[in-house]
Design a protein around this nucleic acid. Structure first.
Length: 456
DNA sequence: TTAGCCTTGAGG
DNA sequence: CCTCAAGGCTAA
């Protein structure tokens, strides 16, 4: 058996890129960053940066600027509260279940990629490439002979940058393994933002609050199963696989949101006039949107379109429409199921099963939702070809993953009008709130809304 | 101060 | 029992 796919997925320390030695203080890191983080927090160390607080941290330079190294530790999501105040050794902390879940997700992803890699060698899956110039392989900058299906598992060597992207996984890895296999599909694909406060294990030197809000309460995570093997008969289209690979690391996204909420909580405590619940929701939505933009930037199609948060407003204008579509799609999926206050009316998805249907194919489906805006784009042929490819991949995937539900694909497509109606409602509501001055300043949501309305 | 290796101990 | 993430130790 060829396990070379494993090395593609081998984890690198998100702080310095060194080899990971296990879960430390909230996520997978190397031994040295673990030690560094521990020393810093335990001894309440304060560093200063000799440069402009944006030093590059990698394996060779990590010793140069402890300030930026610690900053990066926090940014990638290492948890202060995992450092023990009483210095007790051994045992387990409340992050245990979180680590376990993360392991299970990674395992699943690995199995999926490996299985489909092996499959592809045997039988190249179908995929339409109406315009060879814009084929998937072109998007990956690897020339592929005409009429030969590109095999991303073997023919494409990812760049270091891409390797890093692949190394981290899953904002919402939820590629289904067919119905008979027990799967964590019942899990929220996105952290449940329960307002569950856990007590810090360490007296707080870094924030004024004694409590941190945990994005997902680890002890409330229900049981799940490891999936060591992808069931036979499942062929995952390379494109879907590519989406799986470029998904973001769920633990990191989780802890970023958690850190953001802790920060907000702190601000709330010190501010004279507090944010409304709606204002808080806007902040959370903003955080989510940032993650989406990050995802979009790593997505091969958007890479081709050179989407960047740094591109100028005019440049962005053209891309905001599709980007917005993706965002609204994500936003609704993630908010509908997990962020909406209980009792609030959420039209999608109606049942758990449907929730699964949506979440499971969210990336290709998000791209499919571009269709309505295709005409507004400059690089129309490219987008159209991309649409075709995503379409074909999703169709193929649903047919393979759910052979017992041959109309799954059309079911998904049928949901789009509903989604669009919902997002229009959400936009109107947001506009109304914005006009009445209730949306916090510098809100990315509003910025995107503006961009969208001006470009239509 | 760093980072590789060692010891510990709750939870499975 | 075993696992594995905490803290501890120590040579460079």
């Amino acid at each position: 058996m060829d396990y070379s796919y494993d090395t593609d997925l081998e984890e690198l320390c998100p702080v310095c890129g060194d080899k990971v030695s296990g879960y430390h203080y909230g996520l997978l890191t190397c031994e040295s960053c673990k030690g560094f983080f521990k020393r810093t927090v335990q001894n309440n160390k304060r560093y200063t940066c000799a440069e402009s607080q944006d030093c590059n941290i990698d394996k060779t330079q990590r010793k140069r600027c402890p300030f930026c190294r610690f900053q990066k530790c926090l940014n990638v999501g290492m948890r202060l509260e995992a450092v023990r105040a009483d210095r007790m050794r051994g045992g387990r902390n409340k992050f245990g279940p979180m680590y376990k879940r993360d392991r299970a997700l990674k395992q699943q992803k690995k199995a999926l990629i490996r299985a489909s890699g092996l499959k592809m060698e045997a039988t190249p899956p179908l995929m339409s490439s109406p315009q060879p110039d814009y084929s998937f392989s072109t998007a990956l900058s690897t020339p592929a002979p005409k009429n030969t299906h590109p095999n991303i598992g073997t023919s494409v060597a990812p760049t270091d940058y891409e390797r890093n992207l692949y190394a981290s996984s899953s904002l919402s890895l939820s590629i289904p393994i067919p119905a008979h296999t027990p799967l964590p599909a019942q899990y929220p694909a996105y952290p449940t933002l329960a307002s569950h406060a856990i007590k810090s294990e360490y007296p707080d030197h870094y924030t004024s609050s004694e409590h941190y809000t945990c994005a997902s309460s680890p002890e409330s995570v229900p049981g799940y199963t490891y999936v060591d093997q992808t069931p036979p008969g499942l062929t995952v289209p390379p494109l879907v696989l590519e989406f799986v690979r470029c998904e973001q690391d769920e633990l990191q996204v989780q802890s970023k949101i958690s850190a953001h909420l802790a920060h907000l909580q702190q601000e709330q405590n010190s501010r004279s006039e507090r944010l409304s619940t709606f204002g808080l929701m806007c902040h959370i939505a903003d955080q989510t949107l940032f993650s989406i933009v990050e995802w979009a930037r790593s997505c091969i199609f958007f890479k081709e379109l050179k989407v960047s948060v740094n591109t100028s407003k005019t440049e962005l204008k053209g891309y905001f429409c599709p980007l917005w579509s993706v965002c609204e799609f994500y936003f609704h999926i993630h908010t509908a199921g997990h962020l909406c206050p209980s009792g609030s009316k959420s039209q999608i998805p109606a049942t758990q099963k449907e929730a699964g249907l949506f979440i499971l194919v969210n990336n290709p489906a998000a791209l499919l939702s571009l269709t309505a805006d295709v005409k507004l784009l400059e690089n129309q042929p490219y987008v159209e070809s991309m649409y075709e490819q995503v379409n074909a991949a999703l169709l193929e995937y649903t047919l393979c993953a759910y052979p017992q539900f041959p109309d799954r694909f059309s079911q998904i497509l049928l949901r789009f009008p509903e989604l669009r109606a919902l997002s229009t409602q959400a936009e109107d509501y947001l506009c109304y709130k914005h006009l009445s001055g209730e949306v916090p300043c510098n809100n990315l949501l509003i910025e995107m809304l503006h961009a969208k309305r001006t470009c239509i």
